[in-house]
Design a protein around this nucleic acid. Structure first.
Length: 195
DNA sequence: GGCCCGATCGTCT
DNA sequence: GACGATCGGGCCA
């Protein structure tokens, strides 16, 4: 029921991983005890060396992107806009591809999330890639971590999504990527189901 | 070494 | 809808 996803879940085609991560549960266990978790509601696929929007486009490789070159099932976390972190899961076995987690539905540790997000209400805690990292206390310190570790993992969750409950769209914030800005690589659970 | 800009968010109009 | 915050990375010299 709350089984961690096996590493071979991630070591497959990036599009399938992006879509099948919807409805799974992302868990960050802080200090071996405080559990912060949320249901994955939105993802984006980044397709590696042939994807102009991907950090590893044309096989760019640097200290920042190094964890994308690890086998599928590792975390790739980077710092953006001088303010925020974004959390991705590395996919496939040998290609530097990943899935960006763009949205969660908060499940466990909501009071702590409110504290981390510096807010007194429960709305908008994790409905964005930067927000969910802040809420779940995900920082660069977790970059490169394997996702079957005790502190950071994704697990099964007892819901079933039908194809008509999944919306497919173009990715967000990558207008610079030309043609790739139109690729249908964003997946999300129909927002009306989450109300 | 310098310059430009980003897989974002919150606030203000 | 617009904009400022804030800083590291990528790229060119």
């Amino acid at each position: 029921m709350s089984q961690k996803l096996p590493l071979d879940f991630y070591q497959r085609d990036t599009l399938r991983v992006a879509e099948e991560l919807l409805g799974k549960k992302l868990v960050h266990k802080v200090n071996s005890k405080i559990i912060l978790s949320g249901l994955i509601t939105e993802t984006e696929a980044y397709l590696g060396i042939e994807d102009p929007a991907c950090h590893t486009f044309r096989n760019r490789r640097s200290p920042r992107t190094e964890s994308m070159f690890l086998p599928g099932g590792h975390a790739y976390i980077y710092f953006i806009y001088g303010l925020h972190f974004c959390f991705n899961v590395v996919t496939t076995l040998r290609s530097p591809e990943a899935v960006l987690i763009r949205g969660l539905l908060p499940l466990e540790g909501i009071p702590m999330m409110m504290c981390s997000r510096k807010t007194t209400h429960t709305e908008n805690l994790t409905n964005g890639p930067g927000k969910l990292c802040q809420a779940l206390q995900i920082t660069k310190a977790l970059d490169g971590l394997i996702l079957n570790s005790e502190s950071l993992f994704i697990s099964e969750y007892p819901i079933t999504l039908t194809p008509d409950q999944v919306q497919v769209d173009t990715r967000v914030g990558i207008d610079f990527a030309g043609d790739a800005a139109h690729w249908p690589l964003r997946f999300r659970i129909d927002p009306s189901l989450l109300l």
